[in-house]
């Protein structure tokens, strides 16, 4: 009961307090729409990149025998539990203009902080591990005999992946991807430190909410409601996927 109260009451409060004649004016202001668009675009790119680069990594981690594999898995899981402020600071001192690696990028004219690329990098850092983790568990759950059978049948690697692995792990890949997507959508701490805040370039929804709070809590509440609704929709989607098939 206490837990439920802790989870539900703040959400109810956000909805109740956001009722206000200016709600739609705030929720559909140019700043809010710009921020929502940027959030959706960057979190989608993050999710696509996580799938592209994370799937092979998860496969390798689940199937190959590598030295120090548990340490590698621990390192990949680390960003999930790391405070986002640490992530943002780490990204800034690594890839910033004067950063450990960023200073070399700067020599060839690439400067990452304060760009949309930086927003995606921050989201990748904190959110992609969720996908990799979910995919790794999915791949590890496949019966080895099935793979052997497929290879006896003469399936090559790609066929095996497409015909055997994907149908069996599809659900964990998809729910991992949606978790990454929602986490990326809500990313704030690492983004504000590494990417800064500029409307239309790096100002995502959580940032607009935070600054809206500094100006007028009505704006912040209206934007919060929009983000809560989008997140509920995405999570409901994951739940449908997690359920066993009825047909």
């Amino acid at each position: 009961m206490i837990m439920l109260g802790l989870f539900l009451l703040p959400l109810i409060a956000v909805f109740v307090r956001s009722i206000n004649p200016d709600f739609f004016g705030y929720a559909f202001s140019k700043q809010a729409l710009d921020a929502l668009k940027l959030s959706l675009v960057t979190s989608t790119i993050t999710t696509v990149c996580a799938i592209l680069f994370g799937t092979p990594l998860a496969y390798v981690l689940a199937n190959w025998k590598i030295k120090y594999k548990s340490w590698l898995e621990l390192l990949i899981d680390l960003p999930i539990v790391l405070p986002p402020s640490v992530a943002g600071l780490a990204l800034l001192i690594a890839f910033g203009r004067r950063g450990l690696f960023g200073s070399y990028l700067n020599l060839i004219g690439i400067s990452l902080p304060f760009t949309t690329v930086a927003v995606v990098m921050a989201q990748m850092f904190v959110a992609a591990p969720l996908y990799i983790r979910s995919a790794r568990v999915g791949f590890a759950g496949i019966d080895k005999q099935l793979e052997e059978a497929a290879s006896v049948e003469g399936a090559n690697r790609w066929q095996m992946f497409r015909e055997v692995m994907l149908p069996l792990t599809g659900k964990s890949l998809l729910s991992g991807a949606i978790l990454t997507w929602t986490r990326a959508l809500g990313e704030f701490g690492a983004t504000i430190l590494f990417a800064g805040n500029l409307e239309g370039v790096t100002q995502t929804m959580p940032m607009a909410i935070y600054l809206g709070f500094e100006r007028n809590s009505g704006i912040a509440l209206a934007l919060s409601v929009v983000l809560v609704v989008v997140s509920i929709f995405l999570l409901a989607l994951t739940r449908r996927l997690d359920k066993p098939d009825h047909d």
Binding site: I93, R97, F114, G196, L198, L211, E214
Partner: peptide, 18 residues
């Protein structure tokens, strides 16, 4: 390039040379 959420963040970005 950025509108920081508080004044100390402006100082930090300049200190880091960003």
């Amino acid at each position: 390039v950025s509108n920081e959420d508080n004044v100390k963040q402006v100082v930090a970005k300049i200190q880091l040379g960003e």
